[in-house]
Write a protein that binds this DNA or RNA. Structure first.
Lengths: 235, 235
DNA sequence: TAGTGGTCTAGACCACGGT
DNA sequence: CCGTGGTCTAGACCACTAG
């Protein structure tokens, strides 16, 4: 498995940013400078920088350069932050199923890419608690194709997204979502310790990542009576 | 103002897809074919196709081609787009109350700014239909302070946000939201023509605008059984 | 094996921003 | 003016898919 040149440059620069060698507002080396420093052509340098821009680490400014941006946290609804950073209280996580081989379930509401359907499906499922109250049932599917050793590893700081970023250098670059209000079926009601027929907020999300072979499909069932699902978005 | 070549190709292909000349599952011309047909190089052809992929009109398949994807339509969550631009179908709007003086109701779930509380409150309320099905009950409160003549004017293209933008040059710059799944109370059930006890998605939004004196508070009640509320966000 | 997309080279001209 | 990023050409080799 050989890494491409542009990914090498891309990861190098991303690492520099994450380590703080380039601060917010700083300018990265220009395309031409990267060409010299890494013995590549502009096409390759551009590709590396374009990827960084797509992941919103930098902002390209015509005539000026590539400036390190503040990374926006909110991604549509549930954020990149995910649950662990979103609730300021005492939260716990219980794995109902640790990451393992699964199947592309029909429970996934958003259309699954063909390329995903043709590859191995990994799955995990957990319940999130605030205090001792279960507030969210979370089911996640994704292609195992691009995540070697995923099954063996623990999550970094309990966060799936952090693990993707720090261990595999994969960033979330977008999401689409569908929201439904539903009545809890017996099974979900049991898991969330509510009565059957309690209204649940059902969130279907498909996350796109900087690795085009990795999409993450999630189905979330939330008890919203005490803790509504919130988010904010600012330009 | 000259259009770039890749944008020209990109728009041409997008038009073909939108007009149905390429159906879902069809393959677009290969990169090499585009090169010949439009007298361009592969770099340019690729750029056009990459843009289409980024907009999720197509899926790139190594060794096969560029396949037209399904783009699911659903009710756009009021991020900035608003309802009228989000749904591609036959939508109608019925005003239950045209914009008029109102009061800062306790139904508003998100905290109202003090400066708003101290100024005149305008209010309007409408029901959104897809076809003949009511799908959303929408209640809006905002300060009338900065919108002279607002009561007299019609909405531009039926859109509140467009009216703000084109007539008053005010843009939405942010929002916070809370989501709840609730059971329809008698009144809302009646308006939305569902049974009491049907689960409704209750969205509370507070929009901030480019005019710091204007905040918009909305309470939305959505029937999600047929048209889930959707949104997507890409960096 | 032929055709496809993915990566890369080595150039070129242009539009933009600041000096 | 120079350096920046944006577009584009004309090639090349590779990896993947399918017959």
């Amino acid at each position: 498995m050989k890494e491409t040149k542009y990914k090498e440059i891309h990861n190098h620069l991303k690492g520099q940013i994450q380590q703080g060698n380039y601060q917010i507002g700083d300018y990265l080396p220009s395309e031409n400078e990267l060409c010299v420093r890494f013995s590549i052509t502009r096409t390759t340098a551009r590709k590396a920088l374009d990827e960084l821009a797509k992941e919103s680490f930098i902002e390209r400014q015509h005539g000026k350069g590539s400036r390190v941006k503040e990374r926006r946290q909110s991604l549509g609804l549930l954020n990149v932050k995910g649950f662990s950073e979103a609730v300021g209280e005492d939260i716990k996580t219980l794995f109902l199923r640790k990451p393992a081989a699964g199947k592309w379930d029909s429970e996934i509401m958003l259309p699954v890419n063909d390329s995903d359907l043709n590859s191995i499906c990994l799955y995990f499922e957990r319940i999130r608690f605030v205090g001792n109250e279960p507030v969210m049932l979370e089911k996640n599917w994704f292609s195992g194709q691009v995540l070697p050793d995923f099954l063996c590893s623990e999550f970094i700081e309990g966060s799936f997204f952090k693990t993707l970023s720090k261990k595999y250098f994969i960033e979330i670059i977008g999401s689409s979502q569908e929201l439904r209000a539903e009545l809890a079926c017996g099974k979900n009601a049991g898991l969330l310790k509510v009565k059957t027929g309690t209204p649940l907020l059902h969130i279907s999300v498909k996350f796109s990542t900087s690795n085009s072979k990795l999409n993450i499909y999630s189905e979330l069932y939330c008890v919203t009576s005490v803790y509504p699902v919130g988010n904010s978005y600012f330009i």
